Simulated assay, not measured.
Amino acid sequence: MPKKCKKPCKHPGCPNLTDGLYCIEHQPLHPDRPSAAKRGYGSRWQRLSKAYLRKHPLCVKCMARGWFTAATVVDHIIPHRGDPHLMWDESN
């Protein structure tokens, strides 16, 4: 029985052909990890993180070094590990 045709790797710019989504070189590091939305980073997180960046436009770690760099991501100070109180606490 014939096999299915190989497809290009989904990684941007990768010309390798593969049976799955990604070639061996670009396999995800954590294949069993749930999606960002399933880990709590859905539309509510997107909305709140954008609002936080508007209020706090500079990178905290860069400012500690005396650099003034625009912040591009929002991260927790204390990892929440699924704790909703830490997840949604704006001071964290």
Results as ranks from 00 to 15, higher is better:
Leu58His: 11
Ser49Lys: 13
Cys59Thr: 02
Pro57Asp: 01
Leu53Asn: 06
Ile77Lys: 13
Ala64Ser: 13
Trp67Leu: 14
Met1His: 05
Gly20Ala: 13
Val60Lys: 12
Arg54Trp: 05
Phe68His: 15
His30Ile: 06
Leu21Thr: 11
Asp89Val: 05
Lys3Tyr: 10
Arg54Phe: 13
Leu86Pro: 06
Asp32Pro: 04
Ala37Pro: 00
Arg39Ser: 10
Glu90Ile: 13
Tyr52Asp: 01
Ser91Ile: 03
Ser43Pro: 07
Ala71Pro: 04
Pro57Tyr: 05
Asp19Lys: 13
Leu48Met: 04
Gly82Arg: 02
Asp83Ala: 11
Cys59His: 07
Lys3Gln: 13
Lys55Phe: 05
His30Tyr: 15
Cys23Trp: 08
Leu58Asn: 13
Lys10Met: 09
Pro15Asn: 04
Ala64Lys: 15
Val60His: 13
Arg44Gln: 10
Arg47Trp: 10
Lys7Asn: 04
Leu86Met: 12
Lys3Met: 06
Gly82Lys: 09
Met1Phe: 08
Asp19Asn: 08
Thr18Met: 04
Arg39Ile: 06
Pro31Tyr: 06
Met1Thr: 10
Gln27Trp: 03
Lys61Ala: 14
Asp32Gln: 12
Val60Cys: 10
Pro28Ala: 02
Leu53Arg: 10
Ala37Gln: 14
Asp32Glu: 15
Lys55Asn: 11
Ala64Pro: 03
Leu86Gln: 12
Glu90His: 10
Leu58Pro: 02
Leu53Asp: 01
Tyr41Phe: 14
Cys62Trp: 03
Tyr41Cys: 07
Gln46Ala: 14
Ala70Lys: 14
Asn92Lys: 04
Pro12Asn: 05
His56Gly: 01
Tyr52Thr: 12
Cys23Lys: 00
Ile24Phe: 08
Pro79Ala: 09
Gly66Lys: 04
Ser43Arg: 15
Glu90Thr: 12
Gly13Glu: 00
Cys62Leu: 03
Lys10Val: 07
Pro57Leu: 00
Lys10Glu: 12
Ala64Trp: 02
Arg54Asn: 13
Val74Asn: 09
Trp45Val: 11
Cys9Phe: 02
Pro84Asn: 11
Gly66Trp: 03
Met87Val: 02
His56Gln: 02
Ser35Asp: 08
Arg39Val: 01
Ser91Phe: 11
Asp32Thr: 13
His56Ile: 10
His26Arg: 02
Thr69Asp: 12
Lys4Val: 14
Gly40Arg: 08
Arg33Phe: 09
Glu25Pro: 06
Met63Ser: 15
Gln46Trp: 04
Asp83Cys: 07
Cys23Thr: 09
His26Cys: 07
Ala70Val: 13
Ala36Glu: 11
Leu21Ser: 14
His11Thr: 09
Glu25Lys: 14
Leu53Ile: 07
Gly66Ser: 05
Ala64Val: 11
Lys6Asp: 13
Trp88Glu: 02
Thr18Trp: 01
Gly20Thr: 02
Pro8Met: 07
